[in-house]
């Protein structure tokens, strides 16, 4: 029996124990045995610029919620349900954060408009909207919607003192390659009567 299958069967038994209340530690064991999933997904979202520890915390809380809300009778694997729940919480976490990178004002406004339209259309249609439906609602082109959605993910900012591969930090390199024109302007200024 593969480890994966073994783990799935074990989860099924744990949920059965949780449902009957026969084993009070079943909930803890279920959370602990899926913490790797929370870590894995948090790492996938870490490129958004938020500290990994914060993302792991969000993902872990989502995992606890998933364990509490999971209904084995629905015939879905717990890992599938937990993955969707954790991803949803991580996305919500990013949506609630502001920009640390300044996106152009036009894109910021369009992103807010697209986000409102997405919520409104999801409510009205009972499903997530298509890109062209969002474009129609916002009076813009589908490519503008895609651009705005990407701009909404522009949270990442890096300190200029952060190490940069094999090179020195950006702060140490700024101004290193002297602009010839600027140098000439300085010489002219120094030599002026």
């Amino acid at each position: 029996m593969t480890k994966d299958l073994q783990r799935r069967l074990q989860s099924r038994e744990e949920f059965a124990a949780l449902a009957t209340g026969a084993d009070p530690d079943a909930r803890n064991r279920l959370v602990e045995s899926h913490m790797g999933l929370a870590w894995h997904l948090a790492r996938r979202f870490a490129s958004g610029g938020e500290p990994l520890d914060d993302l792991v915390q969000v993902a872990s809380l989502a995992l606890v919620n998933a364990v509490d809300r999971f209904d084995p009778e629905r015939g879905v694997q717990f890992s599938t349900f937990a993955t969707k729940t954790i991803i949803g919480e991580l996305k919500r976490y990013f949506r609630d954060k502001g920009w640390s990178v300044r996106a152009p004002r036009r894109l910021q406004e369009l992103y807010l408009e697209v986000r409102d339209a997405e919520a409104d259309l999801s409510q009205r249609l009972g499903r997530s909207p298509m890109v062209d439906e969002l474009a129609g609602a916002c009076g813009c082109r589908p490519t503008d919607v895609l651009e705005a959605l990407e701009a909404g993910k522009a949270y990442r900012s890096i300190s200029i003192d952060a190490p940069s591969g094999d090179e020195d930090p950006l702060a140490d390199r700024l101004g290193f390659d002297v602009d010839d024109q600027l140098l000439r302007a300085e010489f002219r200024s120094d030599l002026s009567p």
Binding site: S128, P129, M130, V131, L134, P142
Partner: peptide, 21 residues
């Protein structure tokens, strides 16, 4: 970025985000 552009014609925003991941 390419996934977003390639999927936008037939998929919803939520599906595109799932596909990107």
């Amino acid at each position: 970025l390419h996934v977003g552009a390639a999927a936008s014609r037939i998929m919803t925003v939520e599906e595109i985000e799932d596909l990107q991941l």
